[in-house]
Write a protein that binds this DNA or RNA. Structure first.
Lengths: 228, 228
DNA sequence: GACAATAGTGTCGAACTTACACCTTGTCAA
DNA sequence: TTGACAAGGTGTAAGTTCGACACTATTGTC
């Protein structure tokens, strides 16, 4: 926490450093991201990415994780650094450099986020129906989305959206949502199974009033490896 | 420039922000990077990446370009942001966040770099014979190299090493250097020409006492597009 | 004119990608 | 119990891409 009772002086001007996080999920077959409503100036009342100022003895990754948890209650995600935004007037208060991160979260981990800290509200928004965003956060979101889509091709990033167990139809549905196009069921299953990244749990899962599907899990441990 | 006659105070501690740049070239059929010898403490006398402190009213990209030019005399490169390093004790003086960049330069643009500013010397080093580096710069170099190799597959990044005109053999040689493996001449030419990214200049180039080769140039304008 | 050195060219098989349709297994309601 | 509904699950053939592979062409030199 910050203690405004003293001041800190330097022989040269220093920018402030923040972290901001773009948290993606797939919800109702739509890509969605997590936003907080700002409680304070500037942009009070605007929606923004969760994030905040770096503590002076805190690693960047830790700051992103802490701010995310403080403002939304969501913890334990794997945060990957995205890009650093530092245009000179991106924050009206002072010079602010923002180191941005992105993360994926499975639908079922949606322990409804709770607002706290500098946020007066928290909610998920469909990616193609975002409200106006504070600062340059719209640009950050765009870059995160480009990265996400690019990584679909050459990494296992999509598994980041899947719960511990899932069916092939559910996985295909996530790919279709992210790629925004339908995929052939047989070819999809062939390709996924050929990669040898998932295995059957042996159980079945009933998702409706019809034939139940085989349940799968990722072969790799907790954190989904992202092939760079 | 910095004016140390006054001080700058903030209600909260601020880190310093620097930029550092990894400049790659291919030289004598080997990958090489540009290093400067530090004139000042800390790590005075050590080799390090060119870079330095962000001016308070300067964009990050501009800072990287400025510091590169000040310390090495090299200007006009396309700098792409790589990653931001901010471990708490990576600089012994104070908390320093470094936004790092990388760039590629063709062999023929090697107007011999000249040391200036905070650098007492500048030189190119073969990538697999680097001296010990100051700060965490070895980690930065490693990450830049991983990114470079990864992008070879799905981008036109290799053209960044080529002069305005070149022969197919020269291009193949750059690929072989970067991939560290020999390539089949016929398959290489087929693949490159199929991409439709280069065109014949109509001229020939004599590279020795033997049959001259056709000269090519990149189809795209000045800056080589890097497909993300 | 023979030799040295690099430039330049085509084919075949294997592997991978894509397009495409039907039967199976469960629920539910008549 | 049976038939309709809904999603689960499976194979094949054609086209395309990728990789291995060897010889002729052109220039300069001796």
């Amino acid at each position: 926490m910050r203690s405004p009772s003293q001041t800190f002086s330097y022989p040269y001007p220093h920018p402030a450093v923040t972290t901001d996080v773009v948290v993606f999920t797939v919800r109702n077959n739509r890509l969605a991201i997590l936003l907080v409503k700002r409680a304070n100036m500037p942009f009070a009342g605007s929606w923004a990415l969760p994030g905040g100022f770096l503590d002076i003895d805190e690693d960047l990754d830790a700051c992103a994780a802490r701010e995310l948890e403080e403002e939304t209650g969501i913890a334990g995600l794997y945060l990957e650094q995205l890009y650093t935004f530092g245009a000179t007037h991106r924050d009206p208060r002072e010079r602010v450099i923002s180191v941005t991160y992105y993360a994926l979260v499975p639908q079922d981990a949606l322990t409804a986020p709770r607002a706290a800290s500098d946020a007066s509200d928290v909610d998920w928004f469909d990616f193609d129906a975002l409200p106006p965003l504070a600062f340059d956060h719209a640009a950050i979101v765009q870059m995160a989305h480009r990265r996400l889509v690019a990584k679909l091709d050459y990494s296992t990033i999509a598994f980041g959206f899947m719960p511990k167990t899932f069916t092939l139809s559910e996985l295909q549905c996530v790919y279709e949502t992210l790629l925004n196009q339908p995929l052939d069921k047989r070819n999809f299953r062939k390709r996924i199974l050929a990669q040898d990244l998932i295995e059957e749990t042996g159980r079945q899962r009933r998702n409706g009033k019809h034939r139940p599907a085989r349940e799968y899990r990722a072969r790799f441990a907790k954190r989904v490896e992202i092939i760079k």
